[in-house]
Design a protein around this nucleic acid. Sequence first.
DNA 1: TGATCCCGCCAACGT
DNA 2: ACGTTGGCGGGATCA
Length: 843
Amino acid sequence: RSVLKTPLKQAATSPSVLAEIQPDCQPLTTPPKPKETPPAEPWTPTSNLKILISAASPEIRSREQRRELSNNTSEILQAKHCLQEHLLGDEYEKSQPSRKEKSLGLLCHKFLARYPDYPSTAENNYICLDEVAEELNVERRRIYDIVNVLESLHMVSRLAKNRYAWHGRHNLSKTLQALKKVGEKNKYTQQIQMIKKREYEHEFDLNGERNEEMARSFGSTKHSEMCFVELPGMEFRAASVNSRKDKSLRVMSQKFVMLFLVSTPQIVSLEVAAKILIGEEQLEDLDKSKFKTKIRRLYDIANVLSSLELIKKVHVTEERGRKPAFKWTGPEVLPNTPDTELDTTSMTCPSPISESIPSKEQCSKNLFPSRGKQNFTRHPSLIKLVKSIENDRRKVQSAPTSPIKISASTDGNLSAFPSKMAQVPASTNHQLEGQAKKERETKIKLSRSALECNLSLPQAVPKCEAPRSTAPSQQPALSQPLGICPPGHSPVSPVILPHPHSGVSYAIYLHASQAHTVTTYSPSFMVQPLPRAKVTGIKSMNPKLLNKITTEEGDNQIATDEPTKSFTAKDRPPIKSETSSQRCLKRSQALQENNLIKRYRSDGESLDTSLTFFPSGYLIPLTQCTHSSKAGFPNKEKAGLSSLQHTTYSSPIARVIPVTGSELKAVNIPAFQITPLNIMLSPNSIAAAPVLSNSGLNSSNTSSAQNPSSSVLNFTLQHIGLIPTGVQVPANPFLQHVPVPSQPENTNHSSENASLQEEKVNENILLLFACAGLSGKYGAVVPVEQPSVPKEPQEPQTVTENFFRTPGGPNTVSSLPANSVGTDRVSQGTLYIPQRKLEVSED
DNA sequence: TGATCCCGCCAACGT
DNA sequence: ACGTTGGCGGGATCA
């Protein structure tokens, strides 16, 4: 069966790491086992294992050095091993290899040690399962587990039976971006909230009535059973495997990763993950065994991901006690960088609504052959096609061939879809990919926005048919039925809230709510919890419940030992008192001018999470961040700021939180606040949070010099694909004039004059909002006229009139949910989750 | 105990 | 029919 002996240097790369290191154990009489690990080393201290594992930092080991380093790691391992052996003598045989030695995690490490993180495109990186299994001395079954999740990350791809191609981390960033997109599309964030809420309510033994309600809402989220997410250039390599149940470890793994990518504290508990992966609906169907199984699987996946150092195990402690969870430690995934021409729009199984799109899609393909890398999913309608193609390919592949031939044939099957890469041998794929990418970039920029809205061709599609849409519908780029419009790239949108009394403005993150109700959310940002009393925005939260929450929370707070977190109930202002916070809250309700902006994340990774506090609904005293504007921006900006205190900063840069990494844990903000001044920051908090302020508009100018505010906006819009990268937009797209694109040639629009450009841009912006509102996927954060600095608190019930309305109902900016917000972003206006304290501890 | 998760049966699949 | 994949969950280990 192993007829297909790979002609590559399998032999060269295969030799078990440990075997190579044998010499290092010279002193020991360990019989040089042909196979790596002598089956009996009781060296099992968990700590050691962990140290070893951590020692093998993927960062460190790369390319050439990688091997050596891994050897070192193994060396240590081996040394340990040898030592143990010495201690135990030859009688080691009696001691079965500790369970840990057989752990998937360790196995995975061994596996990974065999291949470079970034294999050169030149070398053949084939994996023969048989050989690997043999060399690692494990059953093949185990290898499958590893390979499957690696496959989900596109670190490997299947070539033929028993054979995989190793890609290393070359595709990782792309994959993650893609996964993040899909995750957002799937509204995982909301689902997580949903689950947490349900969990919460369950805890309080709320009658089924509520559950029903919840069930409905959750059901509406339509947990889209998306399929395997593929990457351009790798479409069908996994197809054969995909034909099987797509609930496979592969898909599960991707979903799992998605959860991390869309969660703000990038921490996901197994429980929540399992529930989401199991699929919603199962309200009462809390099939115990099913759940258990899912958990088991998640552990498997987690082990591999941990080995890849994409996640690490932590524990979150909340009311219910310690719960196993994992924290994302992988690379920060930026929304979607312009240089990543990834079309993730089709990564999910098309929903019935998109049935009519095929033609468009096809059209798009024809017009942009270079972009042929369409991502296909295993939607039933495609299965057949995929299979037939797969079959064809297999016919070719099944025969022994040279590496090049194999890869060529592999890619060849892609020919079904016009693509440059499809015609090229895999060996040059990577390089080509880069070129192709660039080439595509320009072409695709044109359709960028279209892509955002789901694989439609910009100019090809008629027009936006958003019902009741107040937005211009002539924008071709977004002319797709908004219903199909994917959710926002950033579920959270910062908004500035002027604070009348303190003169401080607050940045609030508005999260797109499915219910079209804006709620506040602080993505682990520097914030201040609002007094519980002011929960005007919480409509469905029953008072009784609230009290409970408050109490419980208070208790929990006390339990925290971190000073900055000592935000006990006592500290909170009387519920009835009109604190500044409260006013602020009110003001927020009256929030009149918001700027939808994309949140820029610059996560301070690798933070100590021994203790973490995850805030929920908070206000962010922006002025506090002033000093943090180390990035430095036009002085005039600063001047403008100082003149308008409440207006905060017009520069997003000004809002860069001066804390990073570990510092983020807690920031104390003195003045302004009546409520506790301790600010909690989650480890993953954003280091920089661009926020557009109204005042910024005032102080902004139309000069060509781009002010920070506009830069953020531009960044956002460009990011979202609503405007070409060359186009610049003033801070206030609605009030200002759009400067001439700095790089007209970059734009695909042929518009030559600024005015036209402006029009387009504005259209885009409007559409952005329209899309947001109509699709209900973006927060209902909409630009509204704001006279000036309100000096008086607004009526709490004041609801900002939305610029746009959703078909399903009015988009309303609800009052701040105060502390009712849960540990994560809020999805539905009625689905507030009580703030919880999450204590994350590592192991 | 509860958290982990190894192990390997055995069914779906591919050839 | 036979080999490859890989879903699954019993039950052993670990903490």
